[in-house]
């Protein structure tokens, strides 16, 4: 369990974006921390959220091409 969380955290830290002022509800970060601490199922939710971001990124790049 610890190893899974560790590997996941290292993964997401590597792709951390630069800071930009957050306009959304300031507790969004707090909700995600709590989801992560919800255990394996919580990690599943986060992976899903990040997967969505990743695929969106590729979709965007495709659309950008002339």
């Amino acid at each position: 369990m610890r190893k899974t969380i560790g590997a996941f955290l290292i993964g997401i830290i590597l792709v951390e974006p630069d800071y930009a002022l957050a306009y959304i509800d300031p507790s969004a970060g707090g909700l995600l921390v709590q989801i992560l601490l919800g255990g394996i199922a919580g990690i599943g939710v986060l992976v899903k959220l990040y997967w969505g971001k990743l695929t969106k990124l590729f979709r965007k790049e495709k659309n950008d091409k002339p």
Partner: peptide, 12 residues
């Protein structure tokens, strides 16, 4: 971690 999540999902 909280900061990371906060900034990571601001657009979505």
């Amino acid at each position: 971690l909280q900061s990371f999540f906060q900034t990571g999902f601001q657009a979505d």
